[in-house]
């Protein structure tokens, strides 16, 4: 491994625990804009099944119009909790990469990354909720959502992509885009 890359990796590893600690304790605040975005999307496209979106710490709760069983009256509604930390750990990864790069304008780069990553956090949380009600909750709940077979396939793919790929890949992409000069320097230096 080349010198500049090795030093960059060591700095990133040193920053990761700090970034993870800040992310964990500031999660209620950091994730609040993502909750707002989820709320807007829920009102625009899923108003028939989502009555409200609430946030408690890092948990986003979807209050639905769906009934838990066959009873249609006075049986309560289904509420689904989603842990937003599962889809936002890219934030500390990105922060560690930015701080390890030691480039000028790092506060601006942090802000850009935060703004770009948040919609993908919303994607993951929303896809998790949709997967739960449309697939995992069973036929009694799933039948009330009105999703067709192909829509459930799309939801399954969105959930898998949003949980296995996006949380880590998006920060890496944003980092490369916001650090093209450093990328060029790394390429130029002898291996």
């Amino acid at each position: 491994m080349g010198g500049p890359v090795a030093r960059f990796v060591l700095r990133a590893l040193a920053w990761l625990p700090v970034a993870f600690a800040v992310w964990y304790f500031a999660a209620p605040l950091l994730l609040w804009p993502a909750k707002l975005l989820i709320d807007v999307i829920a009102r625009l496209w899923f108003a028939d099944i989502i009555r409200g979106v609430e946030q408690t710490g890092a948990i986003v709760t979807f209050v639905t119009t769906l009934k838990p069983g066959q009873a249609t009256a006075a049986s309560g509604a289904v509420a689904i909790d989603v842990n937003a930390l599962l889809y936002s750990f890219g934030l500390p990864l990105y922060a560690a990469l930015v701080l390890a790069a030691r480039e000028p304008h790092w506060p601006r780069n942090l802000a850009i990354g935060y703004a770009v990553i948040l919609p993908f956090v919303a994607w993951g949380v929303l896809a998790d909720f949709l997967k739960t009600v449309a697939i995992a909750a069973g036929p009694l709940v799933a039948s009330q959502t009105g999703f067709s077979a192909w829509q459930r396939e799309v939801i399954a793919f969105a959930y898998q992509f949003g949980s296995l790929i996006l949380p880590t890949v998006v920060p890496a992409i944003v980092w490369v885009i916001t650090h093209r000069r450093m990328f060029e320097r790394l390429r130029s230096a002898s291996p």
Binding site: F20, L86, L97, W175, F183, L186, P191
Partner: peptide
Amino acid sequence: HLYVWQALIMLDVLVVWLVWVRTL
């Protein structure tokens, strides 16, 4: 399991890619 190793594996991928790019 849920957070730290996910980040470390992606850091590994990024570093491997950067090292590879430097050899081109």
